[in-house]
Design a protein around this nucleic acid. Structure first.
Lengths: 237, 237
DNA sequence: CAGTGGTCTAGACCACCAG
DNA sequence: TGGTGGTCTAGACCACTGA
């Protein structure tokens, strides 16, 4: 009889749970600490384990939690600020070669789909962690004289060198959400399907796009920074 | 007996399903078309509906699908390119006022936590759609003379005007993944919990941060562009 | 080995939308 | 009203971790 509110549109349980957990995490836990296990939490809140997991999924997407199989659910460290296009970036070349351009890459570079492009694949290190991957695509026309007998990493190094010699006078970037497919996931040392921030950079010289780089950064642990911010790099526990 | 491979680490069903669906979507469907319903799909692939949904969740996160309750699962239009910091952005003021600074905002502005800050809340329109929200925080010290009797939207307009009169000489931006809480979700006309790209901008004048803007963009439908790209705005069906 | 999170199932009911 | 996706349950088994 007579509640004052109009029955409240009834938020889903998992969302209420998330709200409760956010407060609990912020008030009573610190990064690196372990939450009670899922079976206990679900019992404590009187919900099915699947429902609890739905709430934890959200919190993990927000970068508040990290779940490790066999270990438990931990409070995540603050996201790492990853500077984009700043001097001093730390990369490690892992692969390279010449492949047929996908339509997306070909479009950006003004090539025919399937035309050969040189590639360099690198992983980005920040604060001792692998935080991202990058695949650079350069048209062979701009990097003509690469001996075929080079090892892939040597070739990659050569491509990168000649790329850096180009007189880039402009960069267009875009950021969107994606999920890591097999190859990126392997490089990031995570299972496939983890959310990533996809940074696409089109390098220009005299108005034309001379190279394209597609980078993926772990969305759970990274915050991409532009300008001169993002200096507050912090160690994960 | 004797398979040649070492038993393959067995990818989860939902990931295999996703792979199959990606190919199907790219090969046989176009934006706006409707997929068979979940019960039929799960039957067709011989999995539980929950497992199928796990695959669809991934595809939705990637912006390949849009699910509408009561309608069905549709092929999504390509993400909308949303230019950041370009002239001609289209915003609509929805609210404003003076609130106590959260610690994050206070830190950025060099204030005490809980100190009052003026706010302006806007929604961003692109191609006729609401794609994002923004909350601008400005210290009262920089926008001193706002009469208290103004309506909120008028006050917001006044704050914005004085903000634009500041001589901003630098901007630091960062992008990370988040989920929309109640307020942003309402402004985006979506349920709470949808993934958003959180763009934080710190405006600087003579080396000090004079204002902070926190924007949220729908991660499912938006691609943030920097520089002068992102012109290929396309209508959703 | 025991304990953790990860996957998967089968089924139920609800909220929403179109005709 | 019938069909859609959204939520929730109870239970099972697997994969990984550490002691």
């Amino acid at each position: 009889m007579g509640t004052t509110t109009i029955d409240a549109p009834a938020e889903p349980k998992y969302w209420q749970l998330r709200t409760v957990l956010v407060r609990t995490i912020e008030d009573e836990f610190h990064p690196g600490e372990i939450l009670p296990n899922e079976r206990e939490l679900s019992a404590r809140f009187g919900v099915a384990r699947a429902t609890l997991r739905q709430a934890l999924d959200q919190l993990e997407l927000e970068g508040r939690l990290v779940r490790r199989r066999g270990i438990g659910t931990l409070i995540a460290a603050p996201r790492i600020g990853v500077p984009v296009a700043e001097p001093g970036e730390s990369w490690r070349i892992v692969d390279g070669g010449t492949v047929k351009a996908t339509t997306a890459v070909a479009d950006a570079l003004g090539l025919e789909a399937g035309a050969p492009v040189h590639t360099v694949q690198r992983v980005r290190m920040t604060a001792g962690h692998i935080v991202g991957t990058e695949t650079l695509f350069v048209p062979p026309a701009l990097v003509p004289h690469i001996p075929g007998f080079l090892k892939e990493t040597s070739r990659a190094r050569a491509v990168l060198k000649q790329f850096q010699a180009l007189e880039i006078d402009g960069e267009q970037r875009s950021v969107e959400l994606g999920v890591a497919e097999e190859e990126q996931a392997r490089l990031l040392e995570r299972p496939p399907g983890i959310p990533v921030l996809v940074l696409t950079t089109r390098y220009q010289a005299e108005g034309v796009t001379v190279a394209v780089a597609v980078s993926t950064y772990r969305a759970d642990t990274c915050r991409l920074t532009f300008g001169d911010s993002g200096v507050e790099v912090r160690e994960a526990s």
